[in-house]
Design a protein around this nucleic acid. Structure first.
Lengths: 142, 142
DNA sequence: CTAATCATTACCATTTTAGTAATAATTACT
DNA sequence: AGTAATTATTACTAAAATGGTAATGATTAG
């Protein structure tokens, strides 16, 4: 089965969560983060660039520059990060309700699942992630 | 965002649901199904072949042959079909719990989401699909 | 015997993914 | 002023996944 999360989103969340850990929200360089999270730096640069264009990150160039969060971690949801890096949340290949693709009897099912997924990812914020107990926010209790 | 469902799974579900509609469960040829569902026949042949190898379908070769369900529709869940055609249900790129990939603070979240998805897809059967009211089985009421 | 049907493998074009590389622009520090 | 650190931006690429097609073989009903 195709996966929901690719490395772009994965790395992006790691980057954002890493920044969210600093309560002072001072700019941190990608070199440092890439090294500490063991991520490929040039790839991370592309990701950070997109997150900044989407105004989830602010950047400071030059010496002692870096990236920082544009908002407080409580105000940044997972769905925002993922939609920037991976496009719209979707379970099915095609959104067009006219499209003959997507097994007709299950279309409604996939659509509701998609909305459910979107809501869940919207509810979880960076603050939840760094707080260390994201389990309380899961879609259904284990 | 990458999608959960690709055309293989999509077509496979259509094929199975189409077969499930016949209460007598007589063999039906792929030529007929591909034509009525407007699917590419040779591609559907590959899909049916895999479903037969997985013993979800039985085949009868030669004139008047075709495929039929191996079990009653109530006994075939969506997750079985999808796992045959798209591999294991997963939300993340890597299952290895040692892997440094997968944003660490969200790992638990993705894993629970994955189990939830698996359970949901397990609960829904072909019989539910052809009954025409699959909405009652959705993960969360709309 | 022959047409219909599944069985099996090989192949292929396009898209997506996961990066690398190169270069430019900006800024802090000396 | 010079230079090293840092983001900005675009171009490129190798590998894998996706969505098929093509070719050929095996089986069976009529």
């Amino acid at each position: 089965m195709p996966k929901l999360l690719t490395s772009r989103g994965d790395y992006g969340i790691l980057l954002m969560a890493s920044l969210a850990k600093d309560p002072d929200n001072r700019p941190r360089s990608l070199a440092e983060i890439a090294s500490s999270c063991r991520l490929p730096q040039t790839f991370l640069e592309q990701i950070a660039f997109e997150l900044r264009k989407a105004q989830l990150l602010g950047a400071q160039r030059g010496r002692n520059g870096g990236y920082r969060l544009s908002r407080r971690p409580e105000m940044i949801s997972l769905v925002e990060i993922l939609e920037v890096l991976e496009g719209p949340i979707r379970t099915v290949p095609c959104q067009d309700s006219q499209c003959t693709l997507i097994a007709c009897p299950t279309r409604g099912f996939w659509e509701v699942l998609q909305r459910h997924l979107h809501k869940t990812l919207q509810r979880i914020t960076l603050a939840d992630l760094v707080s260390g107990n994201p389990h309380q926010l899961l879609p259904i209790a284990p």
